[in-house]
Amino acid sequence: MTTTVSTPLAGRVAVVTGASSGIGEATARRLAASGAKVAVLARRADRLANLVTEIEQAGGTALALSVDVTDAEALRAAAERIAAELGTVDLLFNNAGIMLPAPIEELPVHQWQQQIDVNVTGLMNAVGAFVPQLIRAAADKGVADLVNTSSIGAQNIFPNFAVYSGTKAYVTHFSRTLRTELGAKNVRVCALEPGIVGTELQDHVTDPGAQEWLEGSRKEITWLAPEDVAEAVHFLAAQPAHVNLQQITIMPTAQAS
C-alpha cells in the first residue's frame, strides 16, 4: 500500500521568526511537512540547528539564521540570503515576542521597553525586510501571506498586562489596516490571536501576581499546545488565493477570557 503525503504548500518559501521554541518551532515543522521551504530565525543558533536537522531528516528543506528581530540591518541581510538560497519569500510568520507583565506603579521601564522593542519594533523590522519579497512573490504566484502573532490580550483585559496587551493591540490593528494596502497586491494579512499557549513565554514572567494567575490557570484548564496554533497557521496559508482569514482568535475551550 502506497502512502500519499499531502503537500499543499509545495513550492512556497516561508520565514518563521521566533522559531527556536514554542509556536514558532512547531509552525516551522508544520509548514515544512506540508512542502514549504522554511527559513527559521531566532537568536539561539543551537536550537535552530537542531530544528533544521529534524526538518531535513523528515524530508523537508530548512535554513537556520541566528538573527535578533530588533536588529533591522541583520534582518535585511537575512532576507537577502534567504532569497538567494531558498527563493523569494511568499509566507512570513512574524512570531517573535516577549511577555513581561507587571504592575504599572512598579515602573519596570526596562521591561516596558523590551516588550515594545520586540513585539512592535521587531515586528516592523521583519515587515520592512520581507514585505518587498511578499509583494514580488504575490505578483508571480498570485498569493503571498503575512501572518502576525498577536494575542487574546489585544481584545480582553488582564491586570498587570497593560504594556504587553498594548503591544499586541498594536499588532492586531496594524495587521487589519495593512491588509487594506497589501490585499490589492494579493498579499493576505492575518492577525493571529492565541489564548494561553504552553510555551517558554510564561517562563520569562517574574511578577508574582501574574505567576500565580498563570499557575492557577494551568491547573484549572487545558492550555493550547504550540502545535494547535501551528495548525491554524497552516490552515490559513493553505486556503485558495482569493480567501483571506484576516483575524484568527484561537482559545483553549475552557478559557473564558
Rank of each mutant, 00 (worst) to 15 (best):
D228C: 03
C190I: 10
C190Q: 11
T222S: 06
E212R: 13
G195Q: 07
V205P: 08
G195P: 02
L178M: 15
P226A: 15
G183P: 13
E227F: 07
T199D: 04
Q211I: 12
L182D: 06
G195F: 04
L224E: 04
R218T: 05
L201A: 03
T199C: 06
D207E: 03
K185D: 00
I196G: 03
E181M: 05
K219N: 14
P208Y: 08
H204W: 05
R218A: 00
I221Q: 06
E181S: 03
T222F: 06
A225P: 15
D228N: 12
D207W: 00
L224T: 09
E212C: 11
V197M: 04
L224V: 08
P194T: 02
H204S: 11
G195T: 08
L201T: 09
W213L: 01
L192H: 02
S217D: 11
L192Q: 00
T199A: 02
T199P: 14
P226S: 13
E193W: 07
G183C: 09
E181P: 01
G216F: 00
R218I: 00
I221N: 08
E193G: 06
R179I: 05
A191S: 14
V189F: 15
L178D: 03
G183F: 06
R179M: 12
G216L: 01
W213D: 10
C190M: 13
S217C: 09
K219D: 13
R188D: 10
L214W: 00
R179Y: 14
L201C: 00
L201Q: 05
E215W: 13
I196C: 06
L224K: 07
W213Y: 14
E220C: 01
P208R: 08
K185T: 01
P194S: 01
D203E: 13
L201V: 04
L224Y: 12
K185G: 04
P194N: 00
T206K: 07
A191P: 09
P194G: 05
D207P: 01
T206C: 06
L192P: 02
P226C: 15
A191N: 12
I221F: 03
R218K: 12
G198F: 05
T222R: 01
R188G: 09
N186Q: 14
Q211R: 14
V187A: 07
A225C: 11
W213E: 10
L214S: 01
V189P: 14
T199V: 05
G198T: 08
C190S: 09
H204T: 13
L178Y: 11
T206I: 11
P208N: 12
L201M: 05
E212M: 10
E215R: 14
D228W: 11
G209F: 03
